[in-house]
Design a protein around this nucleic acid. Structure first.
Lengths: 205, 205
DNA sequence: TGTACATCAGTGAACGCGCGTTCACTGATGTAC
DNA sequence: TGTACATCAGTGAACGCGCGTTCACTGATGTAC
């Protein structure tokens, strides 16, 4: 699996992973639209037909990129899980926004309906997305059980919290902000303010 | 300007607009990536070189698409402006989400850093986006003046409110929701709940 | 009212290109006996 | 330990294609006199 260097080179050893890495690098350096199977193969040092032994087609490679990103985000959320549910809610938001800003390319492909299988078919991408959302739902349910979060449909509340966090991430990535460069500190401050405002309310009490 | 049918056809009369319409239609029917200058020209019933009399290059056409969408959103927000600032805040959110769901193609291009001019250059797209955000900022400033919205940096608060609304729109467009089909009623309900939660707070008082 | 002329907005051929995908192939690897 | 063989994961040529962009051109339109 992780054995990298067979200098014999005919069998790459971990080409699938190398192709995904190459696609990420390519998109980072140029743009998300600049990903082509041929260039990806070129970067991985392999002929342009080789990827077809690992991905059915170009769309499958992009889907794999999205799935891998969700898996990593999911892992990160789990590993940073806090015992206190309120702290956990805040951690989820911060991890989410930080992940998005650190991996804008992956973030871009994580939310593309066109990469999902048509409805009806089992779709790994939809599944892992739902699993990730599920962590948020669980946290909010716990907070409701403890009487901290307002009662109401938990799924909807989770969707709304997710929306707020997701929207911040997307806007920070895709709109040129006039005011200030987006440093790690600024991200942290904005995310924190978003959470506080959302939790305590935009309106005065 | 709006004179449409010169059957002489050599001079189209309103080709610029027709090209934008064709691009929108094309993207709706297939996907956002399926927009090509040649196909757009074909749909507009014109040779593939004709668009170059109206747009410098392909990117310019897409940018024009994004700008036109912002202009329309801006107009719509202004025309639906409410006298009561709280009602106005709610109206802004609803109009925004409804616009996004009605025009997913345009929404997609409105938030593409790659369509903006490099920083330093005057950029119409950035300008109109900021003007639109400005309407939200104004509303929130008014609400702060009236003691309804919590004090604090108005720009940041506006960014956060925008994030929440924007995130909801983006998620509704790009993730296949398991639960329910996204009817107009569902959109209205979710948006309303988002606003209430954001204003009153996720946590119990 | 008519004519010369500049300008605008089309045309169609051409350039050069890289793309996604398929296919028959071949070298390397692992397994059965 | 050695050999036959199946399987896996590469190669490189080829197909067919449409794309973005440029260019010299030409038909239509508006204006000056």
């Amino acid at each position: 699996m992780s054995a990298p260097s067979k200098s014999s080179a005919y069998h790459h050893g971990n080409l699938r992973q190398a192709l995904l890495d190459a696609a990420r690098a390519l998109a980072s350096e140029n743009s998300v639209d600049s990903i082509t199977l041929r260039e990806v193969a070129r970067r991985a040092g392999v002929s342009h037909a080789a990827p077809y032994h690992h991905f059915a087609d170009k769309r499958a490679l992009l889907r794999a990129l999205a799935i891998a990103a969700f898996v990593e985000l999911h892992d990160r959320l789990r590993s940073q899980k806090q015992a206190d549910p309120t702290a956990n809610l805040n951690a989820i938001g911060l991890v989410y926004v930080q992940f998005a800003l650190a991996h804008p390319v992956e973030f871009h492909f994580m939310f593309r309906k066109s990469l999902c299988e048509p409805p009806g078919k089992p779709d790994e991408l939809t599944d892992i997305a739902n699993q990730t959302l599920e962590m948020l739902i669980e946290t909010i349910r716990t907070l409701q059980d403890q009487g901290i979060v307002v009662p109401g449909d938990t799924q909807s509340l989770a969707l709304l919290v997710w929306s707020a966090i997701h929207g911040l991430a997307h806007i920070l990535i895709e709109t040129p902000m006039v005011a200030e460069p987006i440093t790690a500190a600024v991200v942290e401050r904005l995310t924190q303010t978003l959470q506080t405002t959302l939790q305590q309310g935009l309106f005065v009490r």
